[in-house]
């Protein structure tokens, strides 16, 4: 809280500037979030236009996943406000966010190993029979097959526990779960991380198709810059719990993004070295740690 005026200054140039438009589906203003002594987000401003694919970038620990978890109702922000389709938006739970049309692929996928493929696909959206609410497994299995066919992922058997599937297949199930929901704002936290080239391409195809249809807006956390320039209309780069860059992909380049990240890394390393000044036995490991703990180091 004490550093709010300071961060407001830093973020001055990115506070809903000219890139903000009245047709924003989602607007996020001055979001801050701490976990005990760790400051994950300091002052984040973000907006998402209808039908847009926004790439969210940032180093490990920059706060990307935290931001996604705030938008999807899993965490509550310490301060700041959100607007969804022009209305104030304060989700009380993941279910509440989903009722507002926001669905998420989590970085850890949120799959239950012991459940079958189709039970995972329909977790929290189960199809049940009418008077007695028994699970309609037959219907779920059929619809799961359709959903997976649509995104072009081949999983031979849907009645096996997902524990038996490969990392890419598991990720495909998590993506299919979100894409096949009725949501019109999708949050994808590293949807391609565990995927092979072929699976990754088919997921990107799905996203391209969704973009073409123009009904959904997507925020996607990515690490691979090639994917960013292939799939996203605009990029936002989070650094130190702040948005350090917000540009359409056509106006930036891999070089510019790299430059920002590397510059930040150098700065953090210098800060860490200064902080650990001269104490012996601080090898490369300690430096890397210092870089990860940069929010503390900079205060």
């Amino acid at each position: 809280m004490a550093d709010e005026p300071l961060s407001g200054e830093t973020a001055g140039e990115t506070v809903l500037g000219p890139t903000s438009a009245p047709d924003d589906v989602l607007r996020i203003e001055h979001i801050a979030k701490s976990f005990g002594p760790i400051t994950a987000l300091r002052d984040v401003n973000l907006h998402l236009r209808k039908g847009e694919v926004l790439g969210l970038l940032g180093d490990n620990g920059a706060g990307k996943s935290t931001l996604v978890k705030i938008i999807c109702g899993f965490h509550k922000q310490d301060s700041g406000t959100m607007w969804l389709k022009g209305e104030p938006y304060a989700p009380k739970s993941v279910d509440d966010a989903r009722a507002h049309g926001i669905d998420t692929v989590y970085q850890d996928l949120a799959l239950v190993d012991q459940l079958t493929v189709y039970h995972n696909l329909f977790l929290r959206r189960e199809r049940v029979f009418k008077p007695i609410p028994f699970l309609n497994n037959v219907l779920m299995r059929r619809q799961a097959r359709t959903a997976l066919d649509e995104i072009g992922i081949n999983i031979p058997r849907l009645d096996v526990p997902v524990a038996r599937l490969s990392g890419g297949q598991r990720q495909a199930i998590a993506v299919a779960r979100t894409v096949s929901s009725d949501a019109d704002v999708l949050l994808l936290d590293e949807p391609l991380a565990a995927m092979g080239a072929k699976e990754g391409a088919s997921i990107l195809d799905v996203i391209a198709r969704l973009k073409e249809e123009g009904n959904v807006s997507i925020i996607m956390i990515l690490h691979n810059y090639v994917h960013v320039f292939q799939a996203c209309d605009r990029v936002s780069l989070i650094q130190d719990g702040l948005i350090a860059l917000d540009k359409p992909t056509s106006e930036t380049s891999v070089e510019e993004l790299n430059e920002i990240v590397v510059e930040e890394y150098r700065r953090a390393r210098l800060a860490a070295q200064a902080g650990n000044g001269g104490s012996p036995g601080n090898g490369a490991g300690a430096t890397a740690e210092g870089a990860a703990a940069k929010p503390d180091a900079s205060q």
């Binding site: 949120a110 239950v112 929290r124 049940v128 028994f134």
Partner: peptide, 24 residues
């Protein structure tokens, strides 16, 4: 064959994941 059973297995199998999926 019910949601209760499904959520029980989910909570025991992956409590964080179950919560992320919206299970209370």
């Amino acid at each position: 064959f019910t949601r209760w059973g499904l959520y029980t297995v989910s909570t025991g199998g992956n409590r964080l994941g179950a919560a992320e999926a919206g299970i209370r």
